[in-house]
Design a protein around this nucleic acid. Structure first.
Lengths: 188, 188
DNA sequence: ATAAAGCTATCTACCACTAGATAGGTTAAA
DNA sequence: TTTAACCTATCTAGTGGTAGATAGCTTTAT
């Protein structure tokens, strides 16, 4: 119980996630993962029979971790401005500090070649984010649901687009510049 | 002269561009291209010795075609609002109507595994867009260069992020929703 | 005008390597 | 003694890339 029983499984997922973030779905291989974990590629297949299984597991873990850290947007004891700020800063940490795009943005680019289950998990993840942000904007700006959803889509687009620009140009400060409007209006 | 001498070269680039758009840098192979063009893979290598050469050629052609169709943003006889509208609609046609992300967004995701020349061409392309839009915003809103550049970055982020959202969720109307602010403020 | 030489675009046949995946054996803990 | 976790060894199918040949133009030299 205290001992981590699925240590190898977790290490495999860690390696897979890192490789996907760096090069997309096509850039992680069982051999690379095996080497990083310190076992043989056949043993990776023991834990995750197919590449799709492994990618699904990584995606699912990512969604769960992400969702678990989202506070309840309607919790009156929490400051909604701080929640939005936390959302922005969490995203920023991934793409600016680690110099790569987020897992979901990478997989979105590869969507045409993803196994169906992974593709579906990806869509579900975006819907989770959209729903959470919509609730937050309803509270932040006293908006009706549809207006709040439009704000959400504009905000999410800016966030993801900012990561594309940073990655493409190598210009890290483009992130803050893209987000400046949202920080100005809603944060602090 | 009138006869298209580089027919095969163009066909190869067409096939490569389509495959890159659909699945990224890793998803185009010499054999797939050869089959589509109707020759053997060795013959593709005759025209483009390495994969990087071919990707560079596709990228360069894309940049040239794109740049050629951009009007001079300071041409007094042209309406700047219409220019921005054209920019938006051109982007929309690629990502919404053809149900995929733009070539440059795809390659940005794969940047870590691109040959250096392709990666450099990609960065250059974004700089072309940024410079053109900055000039346009200076004229559109009578802004100083730095303010216009900030507008440009926010606008470009929204545009690229919108394509990510559309691709990820399959919800085509997210594009107009993400762009509604920009259309409202600057178009007509 | 003709023969020699070279060029262009393609072919067949291969190389070395990597991919995901599988069958069947080994080890070690419960 | 059973089971979980790992191994070795192998397979098939693909990858980018190369060598060498060939058919049909085009140029050049005599």
């Amino acid at each position: 119980m205290t001992v981590e029983k699925n240590d190898t499984k977790n290490k495999i997922q860690d390696a897979a996630e890192r490789l996907i973030i760096q090069g997309g779905y096509g850039a992680f291989s069982f051999r690379d993962i095996a080497e990083e974990v310190g076992i043989k590629s056949a043993s990776v297949h023991y834990h995750y029979p197919t590449k799709g299984d492994l990618a699904s597991a990584v995606m699912t873990r990512y969604i769960n971790e992400f969702s678990a850290q989202l506070p309840n947007p309607n919790d009156e004891s929490l400051d909604p401005n701080a929640m939005l700020e936390g959302f922005i800063n969490g995203f920023k940490a991934k793409i600016v500090d680690h110099q790569n795009m987020s897992l979901c943005t990478m997989l979105t680019a590869d969507k045409h070649i993803l196994p169906d289950e992974v593709s579906a998990a990806l869509t579900a993840f975006y819907n989770v984010k959209i729903e959470w942000l919509t609730l937050l904007f309803m509270r932040l700006a006293s908006l009706q649901e549809e207006q709040a959803k439009t704000q959400t889509i504009q905000f999410l687009a800016t966030l993801h687009g900012a990561s594309v620009l940073v990655q493409a140009t190598g210009n890290a400060d483009f992130f803050e510049r893209a987000l400046s409007y949202w920080r100005m209006v809603y944060v602090k």
